[in-house]
């Protein structure tokens, strides 16, 4: 195995042998997809929705282990089912908060119980709760980048329709856009990002990666596109900065990425406030 790899002259391939490079690429790919999609999560106030979808991922891990299938597939499938369920329920009822609370914690707890019940599977649960980016394999990396690319491509082509539906569903309908379809697309993308992000930041911190870069970009932007772009930059900075932090201080990578994102958020928010004060004075 090591032989074949060392023989390859392809620098790229050799580069990917380095677990640090793989970790960095995985974190950057995840951050890109999550921070751009995160703008919609913020604009539509779907943070709790994101939480519920992400927490359900643990149940996905349990199912994947039980069926001996890919973790990504299990997580994506369960997140999708939960997301669709919430999507349906929130359509008709007003008490969405409560439903989300029940589903989010229900799926998380069921997942935690189910994982321990699986015979023979001795897994490090922490890796799925908080991520384990330093152990990503090349296959993981491929899944993460393909997933991120799909998410970003769909967002690119649906940007205007999603934005219109976000402003007002009836306005979208009158313009010939089906707001329910756009909501469904967002739901699917959310499930995709959860699957992509579980290895990197883990089920408990995925929402942070969605919401914090977008929130940090708010004060820096004057257009939706500008906010998405800045969120992506902040997301990538958090991913790389968090990895460095994790290396230096020997802290867990996922939480370190989120801590870096929070620090960046604090900087842009305070910076934006100062700028606003400076701008308003004559």
């Amino acid at each position: 195995m090591t032989m074949t790899i060392t023989i390859t002259i392809n620098r790229c391939t050799t580069m990917l042998d380095d677990f640090l490079i793989r970790a960095a690429l995985a974190a950057v790919g995840t951050a890109l997809a999550a921070s751009v999609l995160g703008c919609f999560v913020v604009w539509r106030r779907m943070a709790y929705f994101g939480d519920a979808t992400a927490h359900a991922a643990i149940l996905g891990v349990a199912i994947a282990l039980a069926l001996n299938i890919s973790i990504f597939a299990g997580v994506a499938a369960v997140s999708l089912v939960v997301a669709l369920l919430i999507h349906r329920l929130s359509d008709r009822a007003q008490g969405t908060d409560t439903i989300l609370g029940v589903l989010a914690h229900g799926a998380l707890a069921t997942g935690l119980v189910a994982v321990t019940l699986i015979p023979g599977a001795r897994i490090n649960l922490e890796a799925y709760l908080f991520g384990d980016v330093l152990t990503v394999t090349r296959t993981d990396l491929a899944v993460i980048w393909v997933g991120a690319a799909v998410v970003l491509t769909v967002l690119w082509f649906h940007w205007s329709a999603l934005l219109t539906a976000t402003l007002n569903p009836d306005l979208a309908t009158a313009s010939g856009i089906d707001p329910r379809r756009e909501n469904l697309i967002l739901t699917l993308l959310l499930a995709g990002v959860v699957a992509v992000a579980i290895k990197v930041v883990g089920a408990l911190l995925i929402t942070a990666l969605l919401v914090i870069p977008a929130a940090g970009a708010r004060r820096l932007a004057s257009s939706p596109e500008g906010m998405a772009l800045r969120a992506a930059v902040l997301g990538v900075m958090a991913a790389l900065g968090g990895l460095v932090l994790s290396m230096r201080l020997d802290t867990p990578a996922g939480p370190s990425i989120v801590v870096t994102a929070v620090v960046l958020f604090a900087c842009t928010t305070i910076g934006g406030k100062l700028q606003a004060i400076g701008g308003s004075s004559p």
Partner: peptide
Amino acid sequence: RLGYVPQKLAIDATLPLTARRFLDLPHR
């Protein structure tokens, strides 16, 4: 071709949107 002016449009404060950009929705 329908032109629709809704009763109210609640734009979330987190969404930066100029009047000009709003006119570009859904088509530039």
